[in-house]
Design a protein around this nucleic acid. Structure first.
Lengths: 196, 196
DNA sequence: GCGACAACTTGACACTGACAAGATTGCCCG
DNA sequence: CGGGCAATCTTGTCAGTGTCAAGTTGTCGC
């Protein structure tokens, strides 16, 4: 009795509701606001209204939680890349993903925080790599360019832009323009120079 | 008595020797190996053979220590960029800096870990920005290209390449080649296309 | 030599991640 | 329908951490 469980959502597998999801999204909030180092399992438990050891049951570890976030991020990113029409558009989607899911993005590319041998993570990561390769190979190759190297170039450009953007290092340069639009013109400048 | 202080180095201001430097370099080791989140002030104190609160006297905070590292990193980077002969060479120096000082690099671009209003940091950071702008402006501009945008492009490319490299995301693509050489050919591919 | 100051120590407190052991709940199978 | 059973969650505990406050020691100028 006295269980005012307020089951507004129809889906509610067991005791608490979807605790795993609740902790995940609370974690994403914290990371987006204050970075992964500010993440505390006990704080997440408090926010979800459960005891301090509850999160461990779903994620085992702090590392486990972060690994789950990274895997989810790769799933989201690979899905986004699938929608790209060409290489430049893939870059735009990459930047958009970083802006819409900054916490995922940051965790995905901070290997010290992750369980590198995690199965879910490695498969999700492989899928992303596949989508990237595909986006590069779809592009009509200029004669004499190594496609692998072109892939590294494109990835570096998009990743660097996204990273600097999230770190507020481009605030002055971008101003009030749409970052995606800036990136688009930027790729146009590099990949199809005025002389062509 | 019983003070076997082993003063091999002539410079040794006071009690311990250069404790500040000792803690800094120990911190750099830890960060390079296991990332900033694995950093523990007490562990650093242990390594230096001092009590657990000693580091606080030199850096006040964990944040203070990381801020000092970031400032030092910017000093090193701006010095490296000063030696660059042209824009491409600046990129090469940028990548080299990231490889030779991975701990500095990582901390410099993780704003959540830093005291953003620190004077030493902001001035050091401004110097780096200056060097970057200078490297861009030294380049002969193609007609009709916004120099600011070109700067963002160049920085994004170098930063993305360096970041992905440190995160071991380019291991397969680079193989046993020299990363700096890969970066050089990569910039050649983008900034002066075969059609020119 | 003495006073003041910087460098360091000692002690304490609240917080954290992790582990172990117990309690509770929903579910499945008979 | 009911009894076990496994998944979910709680409680208790431990070592380790950052940070603050107060004391101690060495050093240098006067």
């Amino acid at each position: 009795m006295t269980m005012e469980t307020a089951k507004t959502t129809p889906e509610r597998p067991y005791h608490h509701g979807d605790l795993r999801r609740a902790i995940l999204s609370a974690a994403l909030d914290v990371i987006a606001a204050e970075g992964p180092s500010a993440l505390s399992l006990r704080d997440l438990a408090r926010r979800a209204g459960v005891s301090h050891a509850a999160p461990a049951h779903h994620f085992k570890d702090r590392t486990g939680l972060l690994t789950a976030i990274a895997a989810e991020g790769h799933a989201l990113l690979s899905a986004a890349l699938t929608e790209a029409t060409d290489l430049r558009d893939a870059g735009v989607h990459y930047v958009r993903f970083a802006r819409e899911h900054p916490a995922h993005f940051q965790v995905m590319f901070t290997p010290e925080l992750l369980r590198e041998n995690d199965l879910e993570l490695t498969t999700a990561r492989a899928l992303t790599a596949d989508r990237l390769r595909q986006a590069v190979s779809d592009r009509v190759p200029e004669p004499g360019t190594d496609p692998r190297l072109a892939g590294v170039a494109a990835w570096s450009l998009a990743h660097g832009f996204a990273t600097l953007l999230l770190g507020h290092n481009l605030d002055a340069a971008v101003g009030d323009q749409d970052p995606e639009e800036v990136f688009r013109t930027l790729t146009g400048m590099l990949f199809q120079p005025p002389s062509a």
